[in-house]
Design a protein around this nucleic acid. Sequence first.
DNA 1: TAGCGAATGATAATCATTATCACTATCATC
DNA 2: GATGATAGTGATAATGATTATCATTCGCTA
Lengths: 128, 128
Amino acid sequence: MQKLTAQRQAILDIINRSDKHWDADEVAFKLKEKGISIGIATVYRGLAALAEQGLIESIQLADKKRYERADKSHHDHLICTECGAIEEFCKPEIETLQDKVAAERGFKIQGHQLLLFGLCIGCKAGES
Amino acid sequence: MQKLTAQRQAILDIINRSDKHWDADEVAFKLKEKGISIGIATVYRGLAALAEQGLIESIQLADKKRYERADKSHHDHLICTECGAIEEFCKPEIETLQDKVAAERGFKIQGHQLLLFGLCIGCKAGES
DNA sequence: TAGCGAATGATAATCATTATCACTATCATC
DNA sequence: GATGATAGTGATAATGATTATCATTCGCTA
Ligand SMILES: [Mn+2]
Ligand SMILES: [Mn+2]
Ligand SMILES: [Zn+2]
Ligand SMILES: [Zn+2]
């Protein structure tokens, strides 16, 4: 019985109002900017609780977790190794092939994570 | 000019002699078991150096890096969320589709990471 | 043999995240 | 309205993987 407290609502609002992929510190900073004071531990707990309830989505990057709105359809991510930009894509054929791979070896899929690393179109242009 | 020192050779031997996906602690433990004394910092540095030279492969799991032999062809991983088992698979069609996605948006791919999470065949059987 | 760059090892530091713990808010029941 | 049960909060300590520091040592090459 997780509660949607005022603190969690504030966190949810921030994430729902943007297309960004937020980490805990960024959310905490934004809250402070808006004059809302929430302890950093509460931000972490709030993000975890919201994700558990499906109110936001989480993606695990190498070093840290990031959270985004849940009202988008499923997608995976392209990550620019130069500027850190995160783009999104959806390729149902890939998902189908993933299911096939799992089925072939009796593996029951619970989730997946596909990250494509490289240079975004902007950073590619500015290469030597 | 990275050197293949005795310490790094010892680390390389351990990894090359198995099909496991090793983390730094496991390598350090195995070294101790074999009576070889290498500082943990050197193990971390050695693994990074070997990976940089392409002598071993690295995969980044949620919390930690793991290393494996480099003399296998490219593959991705299925990870059992119950027992931690790591299986491998190769699906060239998926790789092709990834390249297509990247090409479509002018993204220059440098690498990718595809993890399928779920229950391995053994753990699936033992579910309630 | 002297000098130099790279490596080593012990240990401190970092960084994201989680655990602790005392305190508080919420809500149902008496 | 008082009382408990339960969950949440916030300050802060702890954790765990990894990296940084730094004095010392190794392996070469001039
Ligand atoms: Mn996204
Ligand atoms: Mn593998
Ligand atoms: Zn970029
Ligand atoms: Zn399993």
